[in-house]
Design a protein around this nucleic acid. Structure first.
Lengths: 350, 350
DNA sequence: ATGAAAGCGCTAACAA
DNA sequence: TTGTTAGCGCTTTCAT
């Protein structure tokens, strides 16, 4: 019964009593068709439930209007927000976003890049600076335009659109230093974010070293945490006395807000008063970070603007040949209530 | 310089000294080609950076291997988790997911559906039960397979794969009733989720009515909240005395966890002790809901399983003609620490 | 303003 | 096992 083939330009043309070329024109360049003819065609199309075959169009125009992105996961709100913004901006320009995940890094990014290339994406967006040599090589050879997101580095030979993680690390460290902090413990997220995490970490340590001189003992860092493990880590560390836990640190610098929030909740549960007993800073500025107790001082990553900017840049390159270039986005430290001055003689460097 | 055309089967064929058909075979049915020939072809392909043109393939096979989904936004973690799982499951089956958002409902869903149809998705996933008649009509006429997610309703003539929101409403109400609650205030999220919200609401009220009889005064409901406004609402309501706020309710039933968490944080800030002074329940079971103070009693929505199940169902239909059917997923109430027995004579129905 | 016809790059009969 | 060839459904010159 229903195995009749779908209507194509041909059927529409014959029903409308015109040629296929005319049908194509009312689809793509309506102003080159007389209004009456156009109307006839539209009616016929409507009547036949005509949906132009996009593969045929793409084949003919060599334009798929698909952009690909590979992220570790969408379960991290910061990626979700970014992709949301990216999709919106691309949609405005009539491009579609094909999302691919590495399942939190368990599937090789190179595989996902190849798959996206194979389905014909016209450009590729990859978060972060460090990617397999294989990927870099593949991108170069396949000549698919691409941009690295969430990072900015003008020194690198790839287009990067994002924020300067290293400088943000310095900025946060400077802020902490200005409040008298010297011994800072870094809590860092999953290893997928490694390069951005590392850059932030380096920024923090460089700033501390510069400020306190070469004798300064570098801060400790705990890696690979998620909300759960951050929460549990804090709870366990607080088994003894608050002051001596955390390697004697007076501030916890969390490289993502979900970590910071886990930390805040654990502190509260354990009766540690933030920021009196311990200062906490985050990265991301999630919506909820404004409402924690205390509200979280954090770095506002401009992911929405980043999505917009990348869409702009990629589309402009695709359509007008504008070269892909790097672009730096500002990221602000949002000062709220989770950081206070160090109270000397209570906690602090042992 | 670099404006040389990309290599196609033809170039690969001639470089490998075979016919285009053979090249196509090593791509699609390698076992029908002698190993040596295959190797030759692969080498040639590699050398020419050959990426098969997916539009041409799709045109020839009439198979785009693209599945579309329209959601209001990705900024809601519950959608992000769902899409993450869906993408993973589809990728395992070699399908790609094209994500489209209505920008929180500001763009008509029908438009997005049309766009996805126009780019040739082979199936469509739409969260929720209620969609414009226009969409329903379009889906029927265009014969694109589809499934409604996040809902289950065997009575409806569309395939639905999800949980039974009405029953979940009843389940939660029953739980609250079993703890002595009678006056319950509903806090409900943005209007995009309307149909699921409504069903839950109806489930709750039906259960209450059934339990307390016809004289029972239906619970109040506050609609259109997000984390911010939920937080602010609670803060304002608590301007006076805790007991008399919230229309005298003893329990706050939040139709999403982000709301519940906002509520919890606001309560805490205002010194209201949950669950002693007020019970709170949520919907979603976000990761963080386990770590709030107190931990949140909430309904665990099986979005990951839902993604998997939908991928299975859609692909099976596409590849083996299995009819699209509805499927009910279990959703559990996760009992934690945010609900307690009502203390009569303190708060409660005036 | 409209039509005829040549592809776009691949797949899949069919033939050998 | 391999090659020849005819489309897939659209766009786009080039005529008219």
């Amino acid at each position: 019964m229903s195995k009749h083939k779908r209507a194509g330009v041909r059927q529409v043309a014959s029903l409308a009593g015109v040629s296929v070329a005319t049908v194509s024109r009312v689809l793509n360049t309506p102003d080159k068709v007389s209004p009456e003819t156009a109307e006839k065609v539209r009616l016929a199309a409507e009547q036949l439930n005509f949906i132009p075959n996009s593969s045929a169009r793409a084949l003919s125009t060599s334009h798929t209007r698909a952009i690909g992105i590979v992220v570790p996961t969408l379960e991290n709100l910061i990626y979700a927000k970014f992709i949301d913004a990216l999709e919106s901006s691309l949609a405005e320009r009539n491009y579609n976003l094909v999302v691919s995940t590495t399942r939190k890094g368990t599937i090789p990014e190179s595989l996902k890049v190849r798959e996206l290339a194979n389905i014909g994406v016209e450009a590729l967006i990859l978060p972060g600076l460090s990617h397999d040599a294989e990927i870099l090589d593949y991108l170069r050879r396949s000549e698919i335009p691409y941009v690295f997101s969430s990072v900015y580095d003008e020194a690198v030979e790839h287009p990067t659109i994002g924020y300067d993680n290293y400088l943000l690390g310095r900025k946060v460290a400077r802020y902490l230093i200005s409040h008298g902090h010297r011994n800072i413990l870094l809590l860092s997220g999953s290893l997928e974010d490694n390069d951005r995490t590392m850059l932030r970490f380096k920024g923090v340590t460089d700033e501390l070293k510069q400020h306190f001189g070469p004798g300064y003992q570098l801060p400790s860092q705990i890696l690979g945490l998620n909300t759960r493990s951050a929460y549990e880590y804090v709870c366990e560390s607080l088994g003894g006395k608050a002051g001596k836990a955390f390697f004697g640190a007076t501030a916890l610098l969390c490289l993502s807000d979900v970590l910071a929030i886990g930390v805040l909740l654990a502190m509260e549960k354990k009766g540690v008063v933030v920021p009196r007993d311990m200062s906490v800073v985050g990265f991301d500025n999630l919506e909820i970070s404004e409402y924690t107790n205390p509200s979280l001082t954090t770095v506002d990553l401009p992911v929405t603007e980043m999505g917009r900017k990348i869409a702009e840049s990629v589309v402009s390159h695709l359509e007008h040949g504008t070269p892909m270039t790097s672009f730096l986005l500002d990221a602000e430290l949002v000062i709220r209530d989770s950081v206070a001055d160090v109270r000397y003689g209570c906690a602090g460097s042992s």
